[in-house]
Design a protein around this nucleic acid. Structure first.
Length: 201
DNA sequence: CCGCCGATCTTT
DNA sequence: AAGATCGGCGGG
């Protein structure tokens, strides 16, 4: 997908990303089922809330770039930068359904113990990064060109279900904002999401 | 299936 | 000191 896709509001980009493919040049592919939007100065849950710190610097740059950060001193998490250069926003890639080169993902996620279920390969932002071998070395990578070896693609399949919005996961500040987009009832999502029929009365 | 806890980097 | 997390462990 070209940079125009990522140029708008991160919430619109987030919704549009559900159902798209994350692709590695070696053949690994996974369909996004869960993402979250993060904005700039008005979003207390965002890394860009306090301005362009060294960590959040990439969020202020051109859209279509990969923003990778180290979480809890243990895991990598990947975002796609959105909006015009000079503004800060991004979409966190939270979970995906493995589609191709699944053995390669299994190998990347192998920790020397028991075999992982396919469901657990990309279910969560840290796991998704590990399955695709995404690390801090990939921070700033251009996702709109194949030159980086990692990109986003549209195969026309779509989300495969209804996309619902919920609060973002794991936040204390900005927890009231409904900026998480997830395929309703998807077993590939990091947190179970209720179907519309399960909501309400 | 659920809850608790530790790992240990970045920012406040 | 808390955080955009995860895996191992114990219990139901």
């Amino acid at each position: 997908m070209n940079s125009k896709f990522f140029a708008g509001d991160a919430r619109d980009v987030a919704r549009a990303l559900i159902g798209k493919l994350l692709v590695r040049a070696d053949g690994r592919q996974a369909r996004l089922v869960e993402v979250e939007a993060y904005l700039g100065g008005d979003d207390p849950g965002s890394h860009a809330y306090r301005g362009p710190t060294p960590r959040a610097r990439v969020m202020f740059g051109p859209c279509g770039r990969l923003y990778v950060y180290f979480s809890y001193g243990v895991h990598w998490c990947a975002n796609v930068v959105c909006g015009p250069e000079g503004t800060a926003s991004a979409v966190l890639l939270r979970a995906a359904q493995p589609v191709a080169a699944v053995p390669a993902m299994r190998q990347a996620r192998w920790h020397g113990q028991r075999q992982l279920r396919e469901r657990d390969l990309c279910r969560g932002p840290g796991r998704l990064c590990e399955a695709f071998g995404i690390t801090g070395a990939d921070n700033g990578l251009d996702l709109t060109a194949p030159t980086g070896g990692l990109w986003l693609a549209d195969d026309g399949a779509g989300p495969g279900g209804e996309v619902v919005v919920t609060p973002r996961v794991g936040l204390s500040r900005g927890a009231d904002l409904l900026w998480r987009y997830v395929v309703a009832g998807s077993p590939w999502a990091s947190v179970g999401s209720a179907r519309p029929a399960d909501l309400g009365t």
